[in-house]
Amino acid sequence: MQVDTGRIGQSDDKQQVILTAAMAAFAQYGFRRVSMDEIAKRAGMSRAALYLHFRNKEDIFATGVELYFEQVAGAMADVLHGAGDPVEALRGAFAAKVAPPYDMLMDSPHGEELIDLKTTAAAGVVAEGDAKLIAVISDWLARAQAAGRVTLEDYGTPEDAARTILNALHGVVMAARSYAVLRADLDRLARLIGRSLRS
């Protein structure tokens, strides 16, 4: 699925209204049951007006996923560069990865369908998003290593370690069955990894 990435980041209030309406509908009814008519109605516009912004609901979903990754990458970078201790840095970064509206997804009876859809209908967008997150974590590790706050002696390059950290985070996310458990497990993972990285 190709997404018009030129739209992301632009100040388009209508587009944000559409994305918010669509994600709420997907969480309530599941992706398959939601029509473009339903999204248009929730967004307060005609179906024709909706098609001026998006080709179909797959396009809406992929654009929402892309926007999510952009927001998460920015939030993670802010947290990682603002924290000195590796444990606190990772606790904040992991919390940013699953910040609201991720809770809405986890608490939805259709959350599993939407997570699966993320890896099929938006697979390319997810791969690009993961690459952004790896770059953010890698940059933090390189800076923290240079400052003497972490050691990567047993973990390879900053990029190798960042990829492993993100894969571990994904494993915890995929195994979680509730948002509260997810947050607790990610906090535990941050402490495990952060303590092992301390110089």
Results as ranks from 00 to 15, higher is better:
residue 2 Q to D: 13
residue 3 V to M: 06
residue 5 T to A: 13
residue 14 K to V: 15
residue 18 I to W: 08
residue 23 M to A: 07
residue 24 A to L: 11
residue 29 Y to P: 03
residue 32 R to E: 15
residue 32 R to V: 14
residue 34 V to N: 00
residue 34 V to L: 02
residue 36 M to R: 10
residue 41 K to P: 01
residue 47 R to F: 10
residue 48 A to W: 12
residue 49 A to C: 06
residue 49 A to P: 03
residue 49 A to L: 07
residue 54 F to H: 11
residue 56 N to G: 11
residue 59 D to H: 11
residue 62 A to C: 11
residue 63 T to K: 04
residue 63 T to D: 02
residue 66 E to I: 11
residue 67 L to Q: 14
residue 68 Y to R: 12
residue 73 A to H: 04
residue 74 G to E: 03
residue 77 A to D: 14
residue 79 V to R: 00
residue 83 A to P: 07
residue 83 A to L: 07
residue 85 D to G: 09
residue 85 D to F: 06
residue 90 L to M: 05
residue 93 A to E: 01
residue 94 F to T: 01
residue 94 F to V: 02
residue 94 F to A: 02
residue 103 D to A: 14
residue 106 M to T: 09
residue 107 D to A: 14
residue 108 S to P: 00
residue 109 P to W: 11
residue 110 H to L: 01
residue 110 H to T: 05
residue 111 G to E: 04
residue 112 E to D: 14
residue 113 E to H: 06
residue 114 L to I: 12
residue 115 I to W: 05
residue 118 K to H: 14
residue 121 A to W: 03
residue 123 A to V: 05
residue 125 V to W: 03
residue 125 V to F: 02
residue 128 E to L: 12
residue 129 G to T: 05
residue 131 A to H: 08
residue 131 A to C: 09
residue 134 I to M: 03
residue 138 S to Q: 07
residue 138 S to P: 03
residue 141 L to K: 03
residue 149 R to E: 14
residue 151 T to C: 10
residue 151 T to K: 11
residue 152 L to Q: 08
residue 157 T to L: 07
residue 158 P to R: 12
residue 159 E to M: 07
residue 161 A to H: 04
residue 162 A to H: 13
residue 164 T to G: 15
residue 164 T to M: 15
residue 167 N to Y: 08
residue 171 G to M: 02
residue 171 G to N: 01
residue 175 A to P: 00
residue 176 A to H: 09
residue 187 D to M: 05
residue 187 D to Q: 12
residue 188 R to V: 10
residue 189 L to G: 08
residue 194 G to R: 07
residue 195 R to S: 15
residue 196 S to R: 14
residue 197 L to I: 08
